[in-house]
Nucleic acid binder design. Structure first.
Lengths: 205, 205
DNA sequence: CCTACCGATCGGTAGG
DNA sequence: CCTACCGATCGGTAGG
């Protein structure tokens, strides 16, 4: 048992994750306050009381989910490690990789909105304060390294980058339920990326 | 009483609006399911039972609010009536007017997110189906009339237009609670508009 | 429009 | 980890 404690998860750790998985599904389906502890217990396959061996309260489940499954957990390393010979390919890669990764489980983006609506963005604001100092330098480097950028403020570049991603997914989720989804181009993600890049860059790709 | 019935609102109509106003405040503060009928009654200044003389259920209050106070009610006429000599000024005006109008009560944008999170976008999808046919022609006209557009698909242009607006407000609300809001340029709305326009247009303004 | 009430369900706990 | 239970609060209604 001297290893990194990642190899053989405790039975308790497994149950904890089962509860989290059941809860995150239900939260995404109905939101936080409309989901009951009994529903979570049922879907996790145990009795109501059993949950409280792993979590002190319903809110603690939500907080664990935010820590473990928030989309930024996937996006952050991707953006930090994005590569490319020049600025254009770098930004293009960063956007495409991020959209593709998040697109594999688009509903997890809904966690952000649940938190925003039902917790007034309390967790979101604190995540932002932790993450921004790590990500901002990336955008600072982009701006300093190249001259063909129309945007010279790193915070604004960062904001428009993530704003574009958020906008892509929320419009995607709204449109997919409507007929006008049919009118969208095949690779809407690429088209979206394209608009953003041309908005930010001075010269065409 | 042959007038348009807008002049002297019934006492009942007034009470109805008082209830809606109390409810929309509470929904924006805590979301739909976390708001109780008793809270709404208290804030509206009447007893619990009194509400049911004006609304059959809690959900009916929410639906009335969506009908009366959804941000698209303000944005739609503005976009339809936006003017401008050429394409650039037209688009620029449309964006600026919309951002300014919504910015006067930014929290009402939260209604969209509440509906998305707690009603799974049911109302949002039906609004989209009603509104899209009216708005899409505007973007079709934009595309047909001018050649210096990089985006040739009207649905995509419409999506990126409203996506940009949504993205502006959600990042605004998140950032305003964080320190990095200080790093943003003075007129972030103008900068945001600028990025969008350059993303969509072939030539600089 | 209010008072007083209904059954149902909520989050959480004790005790084993 | 389950059974059985707690007080509190929920949306909604009857009756005046």
């Amino acid at each position: 048992m001297s290893a990194k404690a990642k190899e053989t998860p405790t039975k308790g750790e497994v149950t904890r994750l089962v509860i989290e998985d059941a809860a995150v599904e239900l939260f995404i389906e109905h939101g936080y306050h409309a989901t009951s502890m009994r529903q979570i217990a049922d879907r996790a396959g145990l009795a109501l009381g059993g949950i409280y061996n792993h979590f002190k309260s319903k809110e603690e489940i939500f907080e664990a989910i935010i820590l473990d499954k928030h989309p930024y957990k996937k996006v952050l390393p991707l953006v930090l490690e994005a590569q490319g010979e020049d600025l254009e390919t770098f930004l293009h890669n960063a956007v495409q990789i991020t959209l593709k990764e998040l697109g594999s489980e688009p509903m997890y983006m809904k966690l952000m909105f649940i938190e925003f609506v039902e917790f007034n963005g309390r967790h979101g604001a604190s995540i932002l304060s932790q993450v921004a100092p790590k990500v901002l330098p990336v955008f600072e480097r982009i701006i300093k390294g190249r001259k063909n950028l129309r945007v010279t403020n790193p915070a604004l570049l960062m904001r428009s980058f993530f704003g574009m991603i958020i906008s892509y997914f929320i419009t995607e989720m709204l449109i997919s339920k409507s007929v006008i989804g049919k009118l969208m181009p095949k690779d809407a993600a690429a088209a979206y990326t394209d608009i953003f890049l041309h908005g930010v860059l001075k010269e065409p790709l």
